[in-house]
Design a protein around this nucleic acid. Sequence first.
DNA 1: TTTGCTATACCGTCCAGCCGGTACAGTAAT
DNA 2: ATTACTGTACCGGCTGGACGGTATAGCAAA
Lengths: 177, 177
Amino acid sequence: MSPSTFDKIIDAAMTIVRDQGVARLTLDEAARIAGISKGGVLYHFKSKDDLIRGMVQRLIDQCDQLSRDYYERMPDGPYRWARTMVHAGFDPSGVAFDPVGGALLAAISVNPDLMAPIQAMYDSWSERLKSDSPDMERAGLICTAMDGLYFQRLMGIKLCDSEASERLKQHALDLLR
Amino acid sequence: MSPSTFDKIIDAAMTIVRDQGVARLTLDEAARIAGISKGGVLYHFKSKDDLIRGMVQRLIDQCDQLSRDYYERMPDGPYRWARTMVHAGFDPSGVAFDPVGGALLAAISVNPDLMAPIQAMYDSWSERLKSDSPDMERAGLICTAMDGLYFQRLMGIKLCDSEASERLKQHALDLLR
DNA sequence: TTTGCTATACCGTCCAGCCGGTACAGTAAT
DNA sequence: ATTACTGTACCGGCTGGACGGTATAGCAAA
């Protein structure tokens, strides 16, 4: 089934942020990319903030989906959730490598209230980690490093190149056994 | 000696970003806070991007200063630079806790070119780490976790509370010996 | 004909950058 | 010492464009 207009608008907004940066995210442009009029956009989203809310939700859903997929394929044992996070964090096709997330968060930094759902997501992750990590500090440190990796990608920064990145992943996994 | 007008403008811009968010950073407001006119601002900074460039440079200088200070006080031995980063990253009075950095970076995400100096800073950090880390993966992982912490603070997210944060710091240092 | 959805036109506001000025300090030739 | 000129620092009004949001009309399916 073809995506609903609602989804098409979010897709368009994502594309704009990814390709042109947050500052270029306007209702007019989103409408243009989505192939509808501004009125159409404002029918589905009461305001620009509302549109950003929708984008955040989309991001959360993607994260959730990815981590669940990896979790299922992960062998059981201690640190199962932490190991899941490491693998998900290094998946080049996952959200972790999608620049849209960062630009989105940048947009949110303008209106911090819109971060609430993200905080909720972190809370649930925290619960998951607690449930199967023999050493919560260890798990927290590794997962925080995954956030650091994400941050570096967002900012277009690299502390290490791609093959060093692979060694980093292995090192992180070694610490989780 | 009292700060030059140049510095006063950057101070004003920093204050705005810290207190009101990136979106509120305008030339008029910066001029108002700095106590001069918009024309004055545009005399010292050719454009708004130029002003942001100045802010980035200020941020880099602060980081550099802080890390040098900590390095000198750090006992010699393996991972000296990595240990420095951990201590600096957890210093509540350091740049790592100054929301201005994050908001600034958010502003930069609008114009990724302005990130170039930051990349240069990371390159030099990378060199420093290499110089005294027996295991570069270990050092890189820990420092990346510091970035993750910074990211979480920027986004108003907490994966762990403050006392857990102290344990995290200790755990990171334990891994560097 | 009502409801769901989209299009068009328009308004008010905000803001970056421009530009014509002012004030003043140095400097140097008369 | 006066005059004429130059460069630096700063002022503040203006404008053109962008953008969020509103109002209203069209239109097709149920």
